[in-house]
Nucleic acid binder design. Structure first.
Length: 461
DNA sequence: TTAGGGTTAG
């Protein structure tokens, strides 16, 4: 840098190198800190510098900083481009701040007019925030932007998410009428919507029509949705056929996830005997029998067959084949053991998890805690609660309710008081369900002492 | 800028 004047070009390079968004912000606000010699003031920021810093702070959700950068961008003579605006809108969407996303869409720092790209980004951000469908339509009307295929795809997904597949279908008809060509994403969205509402015939009709009528070839997304739909409906025969169809088309990239779906479905319909053949087939096709396929088998043995021994054999096999079990593998086993009332075995397994290279997560503890509460082992559950609270995990609402009711029935006021304190520490006392449950505790005069305690924990949220 | 499948809880 010696001899060279520090320019916005150098600042951009420094910003790009800086992984920490807060540090990058400091750098941006005080560029001289990165310069070897004094730099002229005021520093002339390039659009590139604004692009870099705003995308960084947006990704890090440093929203106040982001807004002040946008304000200073507005007063500059620079004209930022729409992709930066999209980045801001998406960040608000990811942070579940729909009103902020809408304000950003109209931000004066970005020169009008908006294109469909910004509108689509806004619609998607609002969709992520579960904005009602009619509000999305009103956003479209207000935006005064011509919708494109992507706009329709997002609206269709929103319609399906709101439970109205028929509305999604109407939107499809509308876009065709308006001569907006449906894309492979359009079909993927609609096929998934039909499948998840169990309307498989319409999903398959659409798969046929997309190729024949619209000249759009079904891709892996479309097949994956169809496979899930068939498996959920218990139609293993057609699921196997569909898998064969995928195998016949290399472009579709038949993979282990499709096999895992199928494996789980075969267990569900009591055809686990066919699974070994499927695994052989996978090997023959050079598709790894990976963790997810093993997990599907573990789930099958635990939930469908109630054969925990066989599930543990799968766990061993998976380790032997160099495939590391994950929390899902163990959680499935813990749930299976608990369901059979074998909470001691479940507890042992959980205690053994760290040694096996897998730390129990919030799901593990919740299932163990619930499993113990379900069979009235409240003192054992209390031990688990200790560990959970220590790790900052909160038990499930149902678990809390059952636990609190259980120790209340046992009449252990001291334990109840201590449990409430620990539950408060992990904010597990928000549910109105337990407040009712505990409400009944306070009738006995001996327990009125708890009232004060209770009021104090209620303040925690 | 938009769509999918895996597995545990809720």
């Amino acid at each position: 840098m010696a001899g060279n004047k520090f320019s916005s070009y150098h600042l951009a390079a420094a910003l790009r190198r800086e992984p920490d968004p807060a540090a990058a912000l400091r750098l941006f606000l005080n560029p001289s800190s990165a310069a070897a010699s004094p730099i002229p003031t005021p520093f002339r920021y390039s659009l590139r510098c604004y692009d870099l810093i705003i995308s960084k702070v947006a990704a890090a959700r440093l929203f106040p900083a982001m807004e002040s950068l946008l304000s200073s961008l507005r007063t500059s003579s620079l004209s930022p481009r729409e992709p930066l605006l999209c980045c801001v809108i998406s960040a608000y969407g990811r942070a579940r701040l729909p009103a902020a996303a809408r304000r950003a869409f109209a931000h004066p720092a970005f020169p009008a007019p908006r294109t469909s790209r910004a509108l689509n980004t806004l619609l998607h951000a609002l969709l992520v925030c579960h904005t009602p469908l009619d509000e999305l339509f009103s956003v479209c009307r207000d935006a005064d932007v011509s919708p494109d295929a992507c706009t329709y795809n997002i609206l269709m997904r929103a319609a399906a998410a709101s439970g109205s597949v028929d509305h999604a279908r109407l939107l499809f008809d509308e876009m065709v009428q308006r001569r907006i060509a449906p894309t492979v994403v359009t079909f993927g969205t609609l096929v998934a919507a039909f499948c998840s509402s169990g309307r498989l015939d319409e999903a398959f009709d659409l798969k046929e029509a997309m190729a024949r009528q619209y000249n759009v070839r079904p891709n892996a997304h479309v097949y994956a949705s169809l496979m899930k739909g068939l498996c959920q409906s218990g139609d293993a025969d057609n699921a196997v056929r569909l898998k064969e169809e995928m195998a016949g088309n290399a472009e579709l990239g038949l993979d282990s996830a499709i096999y895992a779906t199928l494996v789980r479905a075969l267990f569900r319909v009591g055809r686990k005997g066919e699974v070994v053949g499927l695994l052989e087939e996978m090997k023959g096709r050079g598709i790894a029998v990976d963790r997810v396929v093993h997990n599907a088998m573990i789930a099958g043995f635990c939930e469908d067959e109630m054969d925990l021994d066989a599930a543990f054999v799968v766990l061993d096999d998976m380790q032997k084949s160099g495939c590391k079990a994950d929390t899902v593998s163990y959680n499935t086993l813990v749930a299976g053991l608990c369901k059979l009332g074998r909470w001691r075995d479940a507890n042992e397994l959980v205690e053994d998890m760290p040694r096996r290279g897998c730390s129990p997560d919030v799901v593990t503890y919740r299932m163990l805690f619930d499993g113990m509460c379900a069979v009235g082992e409240f003192h054992e559950a209390n031990q688990v609660l200790d560990e959970m609270v220590f790790k900052g995990f909160a038990p499930s609402k149902d678990g809390v309710k059952r636990f609190v009711q259980g120790i209340e029935i046992e009449g252990d006021v001291v334990l109840l008081e201590s449990a409430l304190c620990r539950l408060a520490k992990v904010n597990a006392l928000e549910s109105s369900g337990w407040e009712k449950a505990v409400g009944g505790v306070l009738h006995e005069p001996a327990e009125l002492m708890l009232d004060k305690q209770l009021n104090s924990v209620r303040l925690v949220d």
